[in-house]
Amino acid sequence: MSDSVPGTTPLITIRGLQTHFFTQRGVAKVLDGLNFEIASGRVTGLVGESGSGKSVTAFSIMRLMRAPGRIVAGKIEFQGVNLLQLTEREMAKVRGEKISMIFQQPRASLNPVFTVKDTLLRVLRIHKGLSARKAQRAALEVLARVGLPDPAVVLNRYPHQLSGGMCQRVMIALAISCGSKLLLADEPTTALDVTVQFQIIELLKELEDETGLTQLLITHDLGLVAELCSEVAVMYAGEIVEQAGVHALFDQPSHPYTRGLLQSRPKPGARGELQSIPGRVPDLLAPPSGCRFHPRCPLAQSRCAEESPVPEIVGEGHWVRCHFWRDLV
């Protein structure tokens, strides 16, 4: 399978990742042999609806899965190291210094009893070994860097005294202040107001352009992908069904699900019937046989229910997991 992005080296290579949820009603194989790569120095989008397993992928990379979810098998290679074989202590170091994550609810991910200063200076002193004085200066710099007006004021605030957008900027400041190589952004703008969402996207774009920070943007919103990403993987029911460069994906969506997602978006200022995908996201306790999308697919034939499609190459760095993708083109 050739899912690597041409002209780049992957920063993270995921092979055969299995993350299962052990629920009272049975085992949900949310990720069941995921293969995925995040290209270095780029923003990769991971797109899917709720239940697609996109957040589980990020939490697996961070090794932050909690019961009833558990990583059962697989390999997550980061800078030549398999993250799944590290001790919890080593992994904690990776989480602090190499890989950072920001969340949908930025305020909830900051400790409410600490000021921004407490949180930020602690990170700078522990991970960067800076003196108190230098740390303070570095903190002010990084807060200005993420576009917070009045860094000195923000520094002494508690999370509840900041708006959602400001909290998200603080989270991003934390990520870049410890020199992370990879930022996992899990729906970073979903809970924010439209005008603020745009500001955060702008900030992430700047970070890519200026510092080459590798990012994984997890989202349900293809518009954000169009804004920010250069690579896209589309996830459905725990599987990546299509991966491509962002232009290729929007110009030539080759999986019926990708096409459905693109067509079901309402266009601003335009009226008329939307193309929708019938049915609903499957229950992963009993996923459909064969291609997991076949019950909702307009192209589905009997083969789709029997045989799970393997990735087929559409173009350079563009592959799709569908038996009949040629019929769509």
């Binding site: 949820f21 009603r25 949310v30 239940g51 397993g53 957040s55 939490f59 609903r280 229950d283």
Partner: peptide
């Protein structure tokens, strides 16, 4: 840190 949500559960199971 936020708990990973069990994404696979649609409202049917919750």
């Amino acid at each position: 840190m936020a708990e990973p949500l069990t994404e696979g559960t649609t409202p049917v199971q919750v």
